[in-house]
Write a protein that binds this DNA or RNA. Structure first.
Lengths: 201, 201
DNA sequence: TCAAATTTAGTCAAGTTTGACTAAAAATCA
DNA sequence: TGATTTTTAGTCAAACTTGACTAAATTTGA
């Protein structure tokens, strides 16, 4: 489950129809080329792959008015479903081992494309997972403590625990803000960030 | 600059001489297959690549007593130099964009292979970088604030700021512990974690 | 107006990562 | 003992990522 796919899907979706370069530039404005693997090759690869998988469909191939031809893509209905699933996963999933940042930031970038209640519930799930990790970690440090692990490894656990703590607090604050009606979410306005344009097709 | 290389180099180094499977198992005990890209293919690839680059040399190819032949590797003197450089970089480097965890955890795993003073100074540099990032981020939020970025992006900055804050505090505590003589470092004992065995060669 | 620079759109070879798979030896056990 | 399982050591194709590069159109500016 890669952040690249979610980001590409999200970018195509927000244009309704988009070609690779458009996606590439959009993701660049999100700095996604820096915090995720959003280099040209990855983007074009993801587009072709997802088209082959039926998540995207090629709408047209205009003889590009500048440079090479532009291939326009659009989400299929399976693509739309897949997008919902990926986005929820990205927001909920809190694997302590994987560098969360990439996937979670992708999810956060696209959070406003979720209805408010769903976003809140996804973030709540995330908090639950994070809490569970935290108590797991606590037990590990207290109980069997003192076995073979070299002491500097405990320091790493401590850092990790601190980061999880920070993440929990932040997530809870975000939930509160969402509950208080902050941010424009998918069910507030057709013009929410990342929302697909009205489909006049 | 990949965590895989540093980890593989560090593992070979701590054995003096090691074959791929040994490295693979060692890294598994560090859970490095989970928080870094330490799958078999990556490990064997890194070994071959670094051998081709002259950082490692093939010591022997015993007809493996179990299964296929074992290829033994050892650090060359360039490899040793490179290891020092990579390790320092991993500890010092604090790129806000890259998911730090992978590289930094690799560095922390191998921290005791540094002399104490060097470790402290590397960590101090890290703190300096982190602080700079933090004030950069502060300025961004305060000053030009309110331009085109959608509000949920600010939340991401806030999370990121919190994580940096946690990282700074943790690093400072670690520096204090090191300064107070905690942990067995490379210049304390030949038996420090990850230290190469005495070279009876 | 015409050369140089920039923007647009994408390709491609090289490099890296994945993880299922092979194949041989050793351990287990009925 | 003979069959099954586990451990050992590594390979390999498929997938993904990188980022320099092409090539055409448009803009800039002397």
């Amino acid at each position: 489950m890669s952040a690249t796919r979610l980001l590409v899907l999200g970018a195509v979706r927000m244009y309704g129809k988009a070609h690779g370069y458009q996606v590439r530039r959009e993701l660049q404005t999100w700095s996604a080329d820096r915090w995720a693997k959003a280099q040209p090759g990855s983007i074009y690869h993801a587009l072709k792959k997802m088209a082959a998988e039926g998540l995207l469909e090629v709408v047209d191939t205009e003889p590009g008015k500048a440079g090479p031809d532009r291939t326009g893509y659009r989400l299929t209905s399976e693509g739309e479903t897949h997008y919902q699933v990926l986005l929820s996963q990205a927001v909920v999933e809190a694997d302590p081992w994987q560098p969360q940042t990439e996937l979670f930031f992708a999810g956060m970038s696209l959070l406003p494309t979720m209805p408010r209640k769903q976003a809140i519930s996804a973030l709540r799930q995330r908090v639950t997972t994070l809490r569970a990790q935290r108590s797991n970690w606590h037990q590990h440090l207290e109980s069997s403590e003192g076995w073979g692990e070299p002491p500097h490894v405990f320091e790493m656990y401590r850092l990790w625990g601190g980061q999880v703590h920070t993440a929990i607090e932040w997530t809870e604050q975000l939930i509160d803000k969402l509950a208080a009606g902050e941010f424009v979410m998918a069910d507030d306005s057709a013009a929410a960030f990342g929302a697909p344009p009205s489909n006049h097709d």
